[in-house]
Structure formats: structure tokens, C-alpha cells
Write a protein that binds this DNA or RNA. Structure first.
Lengths: 73, 73
DNA sequence: TTGTGACTTGTAGTCCGTG
DNA sequence: GCACGGACTACAAGTCACA
């Protein structure tokens, strides 16, 4: 499922920045618990917030989705 | 704005397939008018539907976003 | 520091039309 | 074939208390 793949990927990249969910959420002006649920793959996140997160991670959206969403599960 | 860039990109790729909005929407089981508004950059589309469109266009999401979302406008 | 259930509000998304 | 609108329902956005 794309939501879970994306969530995992976001968590990986965020961990690489060394920031906690809280710090990162603060940085991109997003609620911490919302970010947590996105990382957990529970939210059908929209493009505006994907863009926000990608910018916070300093990667393009294309880069963010690299290697994911290729198959249906 | 990311919504507009994405809409334009989707339209380009859809045109390359030779399908009308209606035919393409039907193919991916999406509402015709909704697809139109997405292409027009008016909708904050969610990841599930982005995935749906990418699959219909036979490209990865990463490929779909190639070259867009790099700057703020 | 992170996960989760529950909740309200705004809008995503659907279905019916029109020129 | 497409842009646009009205009216509706489903669900994402955003926030909270608590674990």
C-alpha cells in the first residue's frame, strides 16, 4: 500500500536528518501527531503536505518516491 | 504551486496516451469532472489518487514528479 | 520521544447537469 | 472533448488527552 511505503520512506529520511518527529514537525509547521500518523501509514496524505515534507527533508518529491509505488502492495 | 505543476504534468502525459479526460477517467475509475479539476490545478489531490493516476499513465510516482516541485512557485 | 483514538471542520471526491 | 457549476457525501486536515 502506497501510504505505508511513503510513511516508511519519510521516517527513514527524517531519521537521517537526526531530527525527532517533534523537531521536524515544528520545522515544517505541521502537527507532531499528524506527522506521526503519516509515518505510520495511516493517513491518505495530500500533495500539499507531501510537498511540505519533501521540502523539509530537502529532497524533491520525485526523490521522495524513488523506489516506491511500483507495485500494488 | 505544486498542484498546478502536477496538473500540467498529468495532462501532458495523458495527452501522450491519446486518451480523452473521459476515457482516461473511466479507465482508472475516477470521476471525469474531478480529473478535469486536478489537471486544472484546482484540487489538493491525495496520494491514493496520485497513485491511481500514475498507474493509469504507466509511470512510477517518482517519474510523474520528475522535474517538478523543485522550487516554491 | 512516539503512538493512538476521538473529535470538528474544511474540502476531497461523486454525480447531476450546462454551453 | 472540455470547462464550469450546484449539490451532495466521504474523508483528509488539524488538534487533543493520554498512554
Amino acid at each position: 500500500m502506497i501510504k505505508h511505503e511513503l510513511g516508511k520512506r519519510i521516517r527513514e529520511l527524517r531519521n537521517q536528518t537526526g531530527l525527532s518527529q517533534e523537531k521536524f514537525a515544528l520545522k515544517i509547521d505541521m502537527d507532531r501527531t499528524y506527522l506521526a500518523s503519516v509515518e505510520a501509514g495511516k493517513r491518505n496524505i495530500s500533495i500539499i503536505n507531501i510537498d511540505k515534507i519533501a521540502k523539509g527533508l530537502n529532497v524533491s518529491i520525485s526523490k521522495l518516491f524513488e523506489g516506491i509505488g511500483e507495485n500494488n502492495e
